[in-house]
């Protein structure tokens, strides 16, 4: 940004020389924002419980109710649910939390105050990404622990599978966060933020094969679901945690990891463009 200090009397400045003090950089401020975001998140007890407990409760319910062996795939239905809930849990810490969080901050004036700070705007988003990274990994670890302890989930056996886990986690996290950031501009105020974020997320979980296996859904639902990242995140997690024999349950008869990476990658780029073009710093009341 070009600076025009022309016309500003140089004398009498509290900060002589104009550029005297060094402004902190975007990365440092991003870390700082991240620290504050994480601190605030973990102090809001209700939100923490909602975020972490809900996927675990859902997983426990579904995986306990449906636990039969699937013929020819060498797995139980419970294992399917655990893998799918990893995807849904990750999306709740990224998409849902970020979307509700930003909409609330915008409504309560925090965004406005931050905008008044001499901060590169990117630092705000870096902070959000740190928050998602920490909560997303924590959520995944929790679900994995429960899955391994109670539902016969096997941790990845090869470095290749660990690698797949890492990139599915990372790409999914980024894609869903960006989607959440973009979506946060939709609610008019803090009150409407929760329904506006949660409802589409819930529908998406159904059409992405989290609760109901993809095979038993009608064609158009699968098509719509396949457009969004969640289906591909779940598929990626199944590739990591299910034995290769279970491939037969997939639509394509294969894990299609290439396509998973492609779709998630595309959402990262598309989401970024969406955010850059639609993000509102101003709330309803700020003209």
């Amino acid at each position: 940004m070009t600076q025009t200090l022309v016309g500003a009397p140089a004398a009498g400045r509290l900060h002589p020389g104009g550029e005297g003090g060094k402004l902190p950089g975007a990365f440092r401020l991003g870390l700082l924002r991240g620290g504050v975001e994480i601190k605030q998140f973990f102090r809001a007890k209700e939100a923490v419980v909602f975020t972490f407990a809900l996927p675990i409760v859902m997983m426990t319910m579904f995986a306990s109710i449906f636990h039969d062996k699937i013929q020819g795939a060498g797995i139980t239905v419970s294992q399917l649910y655990v893998a799918a809930m990893l995807g849904a849990g990750l999306m709740s810490t990224s998409f849902q939390n970020i979307g509700i969080g930003i909409a609330t901050e915008r409504d309560e004036g925090n965004l406005r105050r931050l905008r008044a700070m001499p901060m590169p705007r990117s630092a705000y988003f870096f902070g959000k990404l740190w928050l998602v990274l920490v909560t997303g990994v924590a959520e995944t670890a929790l679900l994995l622990a429960v899955g391994v302890a109670f539902f016969d989930l096997k941790l990845p056996s090869t470095p290749g599978k660990w690698f797949t886990l890492a990139w599915v986690l990372l790409l999914g996290m980024i894609a869903c966060s960006l989607l959440g950031i973009a979506m946060s501009s939709v609610p008019r105020d803090a009150k409407s933020a929760t329904p506006i974020m949660v409802l589409p997320f819930l529908v998406l979980q159904f059409i992405s094969g989290v609760y109901i296996s993809i095979n038993s859904m009608s064609g158009w639902m699968v098509k719509v679901g396949s457009f969004f990242p969640l289906k591909w995140m779940c598929q990626g997690f199944r590739a990591v945690f299910l034995p290769d024999r279970a491939k037969v349950l997939e639509q394509g008869g294969d894990w299609e990891l290439g396509r998973v990476a492609l779709v998630l990658g595309a959402w990262c780029i598309g989401g970024l463009i969406l955010c850059l073009t639609t993000f509102r710093w101003k709330g309803r009341r700020d003209g």
């Binding site: 402004l23 601190k39 406005r112 105050r113 008044a116 700070m117 901060m119």
Partner: peptide, 25 residues
């Protein structure tokens, strides 16, 4: 510019409640 913002202090008419932090934080 950022520099300009670092010279400005603002107290808005509507108070800003910032979540779960303490006063000092």
């Amino acid at each position: 510019s950022r520099q300009w913002k670092s010279w400005i202090g603002i107290v808005w008419q509507n108070e800003v409640v910032s979540g779960e932090l303490t006063v000092a934080e």
